[in-house]
Design a protein around this nucleic acid. Structure first.
Lengths: 119, 119
DNA sequence: TCTTTATATGCGCATCTACGCCTATATTCT
DNA sequence: AGAATATAGGCGTAGATGCGCATATAAAGA
């Protein structure tokens, strides 16, 4: 689950999505990214790193260039994590002690948790 | 694309993922969510709203309760957006003027964009 | 009507995030 | 070696985010 949060964080930024869009076309160096998206070098570099750290990109060094490209395996892993998570209800059960019927019968029409948590 | 960023933002929080996990089990009121996840009322309410605003939840009022549940249609829409986005390279082309070969031939071995953007 | 209870929200604060500026590092060319 | 260039990273800051506290609102029930 923690892994999923990390992936979603990496994807919840317009600049990074634009970078992904660009890299879906083809492998690019930082310079090309900054040109194509008309953003600063720092910004391009930082966001590429972020996507890399999240496992969405591959990095290949060639001379002065850092060539980034989509990491097919990483994306595949993300997609299958996502699908599996939904499939099995995001791992384990969170419900546990939850039982609305029981609470209803226990006199109170609903849990008076607010009050309890206040004092 | 903007819509996707919004969705990813909503999903990039552990509390909200736990809420989704819970709601995959069954519909819950705010009280139940705060109990099951052992979080404050404010926190439960705010995060439920966030998921609702992002289109992942449905809301049904019954007496004093706000009953939240997974919005099947919303999730479906998200998944298809996601898949379609990847499929068509996240809408439109970003590459445009990008041409590494051209740049290579233009004397410079690589774009000297850093320098250019500095002054 | 008065009380209880569930939920939502304004305010303030601590923290996180994105990014610009500047500089260090590394590689290549002369 | 010295110069040019591509990239990364430190530092500072503005803005976003998460959340607790207190309170407003609304729906029942007594």
């Amino acid at each position: 689950m923690r892994e999923l949060v990390k992936s979603f964080k990496a994807l919840s930024d317009e600049t990074r999505l634009r970078i992904l869009k660009l890299l879906l076309e083809r492998e690019c160096c930082v310079c090309e990214v900054m040109q194509a998206l008309d953003i600063s070098q720092t910004r391009a570099s930082r966001n590429l790193s972020a996507l890399y750290d999240a496992g969405f990109l591959e990095l290949r060094k060639e001379g002065l260039w850092s060539l980034y490209s989509i990491d097919q395996e990483g994306v595949k892993a993300y997609m299958s994590d996502l699908i599996e998570a939904v499939d099995k209800g995001l791992e384990g059960k969170e419900v546990a002690a939850l039982d609305r019927e029981r609470l209803r019968k226990a006199k109170r029409v609903g849990p008076e948790c607010v009050r309890r948590s206040r004092r």
